[in-house]
Amino acid sequence: MKQWLLQVAALSKLSVLELYRRKDLVVVFLLAIVILLPAAFLAPFGVSGASRYISELAMLLIWLFSIIIGLGVSARLFPPEFESRTIYPLLAKPVARGTVVFGKYLGALTASVSALLVFYLAYALLIGMRQGEWFTPILFQAALLHIGFLIIITALTLLGSLVMTPSAALTLSALTVVGMLVFGQRLPALAAAQTGAGRWVLYAIHWFAPHVEFFDLRQRLVHAWPCVEWRVCLAVLVYALGYAGLCLVLAGRAFRRKRL
């Protein structure tokens, strides 16, 4: 068990280093500052004191950047290794293929979550300075569920990168994530409004596609609504772990069957 943990930790560390070596985080952070800084000084009609718009804009950027980082990191876990053939020395070591998949996934997740925590820390400081409210429970809950979101999308993209080309995996994952964030809540109503095959296709999407909209607490956070019940929060995190676990099992199978 200790041996397995050491192997997983070593594989994870590589993925985390990869993210920070490529300076993605610095770029998106600077971009966020460039967008938010001028907006923060806006006094519409000469009236100052509004802060929700900046909060909403900041959260939108956090979500956008977390999707870009999460998908980008997990889609690049295996394809470059196949292309540069560095996967062979890795598999020549006494490491099970399932461990490689899990270790790399954990690395992608750790890298994405670490970037996310930096974003949330910056957000908390920004909002704290503007509104005087530091680290509210809803902020903690939003960050927790956002981690749940990353748990799902990194697993999904990792699975995609093993069964299709990297660009196809990235595109399909991005479409799924954005599509579900936008339409996920309304799928049953949309399905009910359809007739024939369209209805069953939408119901199938509703039942089997990843409901990433569960993790989006932006509205509650920005407009200061109360926290979600903790049992619901727990149910959503269990959903994330279950869905990611299923994706990883399938990714492990795909990797074991892959002809290298």
């Binding site: 569920l145 996920g184 809540q185 049953p188 109503a189 009910a192 509703h206 039942w207 409901h211 909209e213 569960f214 989006d216 607490l217 509205q219 509650r220 407009h223 609504w225 979600v228 019940e229 619901v232 149910a235 959503v236 959903y239």
Partner: peptide, 20 residues
């Protein structure tokens, strides 16, 4: 319940509790 009002839909149940 689904729009037809018969079966339990856990995804709908979660959505209604997560989103205001």
């Amino acid at each position: 319940s689904t729009p037809s009002g018969h079966s339990f839909d856990p995804w709908r149940w979660i959505n209604r509790r997560v989103h205001v």
